[in-house]
Each structure stands twice: as structure tokens, then as C-alpha cells.
Design a binder for these strands. Sequence first.
RNA 1: GGUCGGUUCGUCUAGGGGUUAGGACGUAUCCCUUUCACGGAUAAGACACGGGUUCGAUUCCCGUACCGACUACCA
Length: 511
Amino acid sequence: MSREVRVRFAPSPTGALHIGGVRTALYNYLFAKKTNGRFLLRIEDTDRNRFVPGAEEYIKDALDWLGIAPDESPWSPGDCGPYRQSERKPMYMQYAMDLIEKGHAYYAFDTSEELDAMRERLTAARVVSPQYNSITRTQMKNSLTLPEDEVKEKLASGEPYVIRIKIPRKEEVRLNDMIRGWVMVHSNSLDDKVLMKSDGMPTYHLANIVDDHLMEITHVIRGEEWLPSAPLHVLLYKYFGWEDTMPQFAHLPLLLKPDGNGKLSKRDAEKHGFPIFPLNWKDPGSGNILQGFKESGYMPDAFLNFLAFLGWNPGDHREIFSLDELVDAFSIERIGKSGTKFDINKAQWYNEQYLRAKSDEALAAYLLADMGKEGHSIELEKAIKIAHIIKERATFPSDLWLEGKFMVVAPTSFDEELAAKKWNEDAVKVLGTYQEKLGSFDGEFSPETAKSILESAAVEHEIKLGKVMQAVRLAITGVGVGPDMMAVFSILGKKELIKRIGFALDTLTVS
RNA sequence: GGUCGGUUCGUCUAGGGGUUAGGACGUAUCCCUUUCACGGAUAAGACACGGGUUCGAUUCCCGUACCGACUACCA
């Protein structure tokens, strides 16, 4: 039996999709592409109370941004639609009924008050974990305890009910997880989970199994938080009689807080000031904006590369992988078992690597766009040159303008501390002479000529160039650090240099 | 509490019965650079603990500790 590989990413539209979800999507995508299979996206919106407007669009936009769009989804349906569980609502009841007929499920009429009372009673009796199970169900209001007539009457009269799975009393449930190996659970630790809610919607457990079956899913790659309910899912496959096509499970290690312990959460984003969401997200309730990787300056290929390595590695020392290379190298066997702390440093490093690998032309476009927002513009040619000398000191594309602005806009003030230390008679003399020499020079202006003229100015006053170099930088750029001066000189050009030196000479005073 | 899962440098990880336990991020130092950064080099830095099994265990087994997930008519 070799079926075409079909995997799915099945998020709930309850808010912004965080980085852990994005990684789950990525691994699903990589596995699908690696095996020439298909990657589907299914929206699990069976809980109307938690539905958040915009969340679904957010998921789509995030995957599009990263270039890992699904082959089948609500917005690009295949043959297994609909791809939203809310739209599949009419399909589920028949499966629940099937289970009831087979004796693997039953109606339950208990109100939430009655359920609370039961739990309280059990807690008071010091039962360790109060649950609706093979023991307690005998004392509750359900089709197993009530006379058949009464059950029929309740159903006919429209009394609210749920359908619960009937977990067997003594049974070893086992599953072979692709990442964790054999996992065994005894059925007496499972409870009679609700399959159909009183509003007529299925719960996650039912919808998930039915949909995975109908959509012919072959591998379920999801977060570790699902491991405890996996035995329940295995039982459902068995009761439906779908064991032969039951997907293989792979439960991914969790993404942990950067500091301390616990699962990465929304609070961590606010706490640390760095993003844990792919895109900006404005919470419709509070109006708060959560920072996205995209808007923070992370590039999709760099972010993807970073994400792939959170819990997976290729087994050799390579670190930089394009999406295609990731597809090629990916295997579920090489996914780790233990939780992964999220480290923003590594994300930054990846971004720097990708930024440096980009062409000067591509980077010039970022630079031009950013300066345009502040009303500045220069020729493309010049922008390319600036991008070239600035990119090595940038982490984000926006750093290009931040760090390169001085090449476009002349300084209007000077670093006072540096001026106090380095601005002296010698500097004034050399710069004065340099300015004159530049004025009378009319050959080809290059980094070399810029330098030789400056050297000759220094020689004229018998001053070592090194002594005044910091002052020269100060005069031209206003600050003490920056890229190679001669490269800066040649980009600025003769006229601009003369102007800037003039301004510095007029403004700065020797103390 | 119960069930399940996990544990190699600060972090991400490779490895696997005999290794100087390898790499990357970060950190430090040096080199390069008339500055900073980049780049290059070097350094510090780890097998949670206790029992087995074994000639030998970081690796296999069992316990303990610690961490995490789950324990809803949420997914």
C-alpha cells in the first residue's frame, strides 16, 4: 500500500498564528514537497466562541509571505472541500451516529452544573482526577443509564445533549510515533471525551479524525501538545474501522520561552521586545499590536531557514539552506525530541547572513524606499554603491538607511565628545589645505585620488595623517564610526566634500 | 495529584559502548582594518544524579531529580 503522501496543517483561527504554528506548517510543507505529496490547510473553527475575525487571513498571509502556501485550502480548494470545519458541519453527525450504533458512543444529557457537581463530589472524595469515564458515567444522565424510552423522549423533545465516546475499561492503546517511537497508554486513564457538542458542532477530536480520513491524510505532523490525546484518536480510527488507512503520527517538540520555563506564549513577545509572530497582528479586542518578524525587518528566506533549524538539523555542519535545499535535506527522522528554546540571536544572525548575500542592487531598492519615506532621493547608481559599503554592518534592510543616511544628508551637528578630543589645530590645517586642493583638482575622483590628495595636504604641514584621521571623519560624517573613509569620499564626490569640510571648519571650534 | 513526553556547552545541536565529546549562535582575546563593523584565528564552555549490565558507559536498562505538555461541550 503506497498512497500519495497528503499532510495537513490545521490551525484554529483564534488569533495570530505564532511561530510554533508556522514551524509546524513549514515541516508539513517540507515533508509534502520532499515526498512529492500534497500539503493541505484546514481551518479548524468548530468553536464559534473563540473565532477571531481576521485570523484566517492572517494565516494565509503568513504562509504566502514565507512562500509555503498550501496546495489545497479554503482559498485554493482541491477535491476534498470544504476546507473549513464550520462549513463541513452537516457531515459529522452521521459519523457520531455510526459510533453510537456500534456501541462506541452514547448520548449524555448532563448539564454543566451537574458536571461540576460530579467533579466536586469526586474531588471531595479525594478521587485524584475527576473525569467522565467508565466508572462515573454509571451515575450520570446518559443513554447508558437512562431507560431507552426516556432517552428517546429527551431526544424528541429537543433537550440538549452531547455525544461522548465510550472508552473501554481495560485496554492498552498504542501508537508508533515517527519521532517518539512506541507510546502506550492504558484506557483507564482516558475519559469519555465529548465528540458532538450540544450546539451540533463536533469537537476537535471527532472533526479531526473524520476530516483526516475523508481528506486521505497519510501523516499527521503536529505539536507535542496533542500527544496525550493521540491514543483517543487511535481508538476513534479503530471504532470507525479505518485502521488500515490511519495516518502516521509525528509529534513535534514544543517551542519554549527564551528564558525560564514553559511554552512560548504571547506574553513573551511583549516581555522581550522581539517578535514571535510572523506578521504584525492587531488584536481586535484590545487594539494592541503584536510585532511581526516581517515588519521587524526579517526576510522570509532567512526566517524560514531559522525556523527550520528549531528542532531539526540536516546531520552535517551546513547552516544556510534555501527553501528548495530544505526540501531536499528534510526528513522527519532528524527532528529532535526535546523542547527548543527560542533564541532571537540566531534569528538575527540568519538575517545578517541573508542580507549580506543579497545583491547590491536588491539592497539599493530597500535603501531608496526608506529614504523616500523621509523625502530624500538619489540616483540608483549611488544607492548601489552605498548599499555595497553599508550591508556588512546591517542586520535588517532598514539599517541600510539608518547607517547610510550620512552619505545622503550632510551632518548638521557633530559628536561633541569626539570633537573635544580630536578636533585640533592640526586637523584644521590639514582639512583647510585639503579643501583647497580638492577645489583645484580636476582629474578623475576615486578613492585613491581622494586619499593621495589628503596625504599631500598632511605632508604639507608635516602632520601624520593618522593623527587627524578621526577629525577628518568627524568633519565629513559628524560621528566617529562608519565605513572606510576613502570609499565614503569617492561616493560623496569632490563638491560635497568641499562643502562638508567648509561647514565643519565654520562650525567646530578648537578648544 | 494523575497520564504522557523530555534531559549533551548559556542557547540551538552532532555523536554514540572505547572520541582530545564535533559544529553553530552568543561571550572573550588576538589578527586584519588610520574608526566601527565584516572577515580570519584562538579561548572559555556540556553528556542532570544514583544504581545496574559490561573489560569499559555520556551512549543500553532501572530508579531518582528536574523540566514540559495534557488533564473543557478549546483547539
